[in-house]
Design a protein around this nucleic acid. Structure first.
Lengths: 203, 203
DNA sequence: CCTACCGATCGGTAGG
DNA sequence: CCTACCGATCGGTAGG
């Protein structure tokens, strides 16, 4: 009688999620190595040993977070769903959807940086192998003579520079975050990056 | 009589440098927290206690590396020295100089990622404050009615997207490094990023 | 610059 | 899921 059937998540599932949420915040703050299992346990509301009922070890917590929060997996669905008959319209829609989905918060990208710094990008080969073939046709549909794209730009360049510009916006957002400079550079938005991507800076 | 006067560096200076070099490689490989003083000492050819004759602690080794190898400080002199009467010529020269100076090696940027991940970008405010005012006039000289730049692009946007594209190239280089994908995307160069920056992707 | 060592903390486990 | 603990390793220091 003590467990209400209206609740759809079990206590175990809620603890599992609490561990993930606590670990996510701590990893973003201090990185992987500098975050201890004891810190995660405390933040999740249990004692150090309790974590091991839900995860085999620290590494597996990070693995689960990579699967849940990786930027590729955050950005890709947005690209998938964006409409647009021309490249220009498509990119405008992607920009709006990304800003609506991710906002100006660059946190979602930090897990990738942790992977680069502390795991030597261990998962990137498999991720790139998985995502790139799915992304390719998405942009390849604009690779035809009637397209509004400049024909002299190779398709791989297009894909890489496009993704690169999304990362560039959020990376510079991190760099400028909390910096005290009084500049208008802080007001630059993803839209501005994409305007340059579309039209360039020259007359 | 045992110290040859022809040698311009003392033994102490050489040890200091050996510690820095060893720490640099280890930090790039494993990050800051996962690198121990013992590893650094071993790689530098001394015992753990010996390091403390040259550095007060682990943190100060990282500080010294940030000063010596920070990407802002690597990229900025290249921008400073690049000639060019038009923005287009200037950017072409910057691109060539950067590729000649940094090559395709994205290592120089990883120290910045370690700072983001493990130090919450502690030094960025001061760095941005120092570098941005010096960079601004560098690009502002193209901000006039006779310039070849599109007048509707604000100067802060120009600066940020430009730097962002340099980072985007090296960041995607890291992501693709060692990934087994058989694509032509690996052959994209900094020059291609800058071509898009200059002219955009649309007709 | 080495030897030997300090207290603290780490990831993980045994047993209940 | 907690209590109590394991061996290992950490950054740093004392003394020479």
């Amino acid at each position: 009688m003590s467990s209400p059937p209206t609740t759809e998540t079990t206590k175990g599932e809620r603890t599992y999620q609490a561990i993930l949420d606590s670990a996510y915040l701590l990893f973003l703050q201090n990185g992987y190595s500098a975050t201890s299992m004891r810190q995660i346990a405390l933040a999740a509301g249990l004692t150090p040993g309790g974590i091991y009922n839900h995860f085999p070890g620290k590494d597996e917590i990070f693995q689960a977070l990579v699967i849940a929060k990786h930027p590729y997996l955050t950005i890709f669905p947005v690209l998938q769903e964006a409409p647009g008959d021309t490249a220009e319209a498509f990119i405008a829609n992607v920009t709006n959807l990304l800003e609506a989905t991710l906002g100006n918060d660059p946190d979602f990208i930090k897990l990738m940086f942790i992977e680069i710094v502390e795991f030597r990008g261990r998962h990137f080969p498999k991720l790139v192998e998985t995502i790139y073939p799915m992304m390719y046709p998405l942009i390849a549909r604009f690779d035809n003579p009637e397209s509004d794209l400049r024909p002299e730009i190779a398709l791989p360049t297009l894909v890489r520079v496009f993704i690169g510009n999304i990362f560039a916006y959020y990376l510079t957002e991190i760099l400028l975050h909390d910096s005290g400079i009084p500049s208008e550079i802080r007001t630059v938005r993803l839209e501005d990056f994409m305007q340059v991507f579309l039209h360039g800076v020259l007359r």
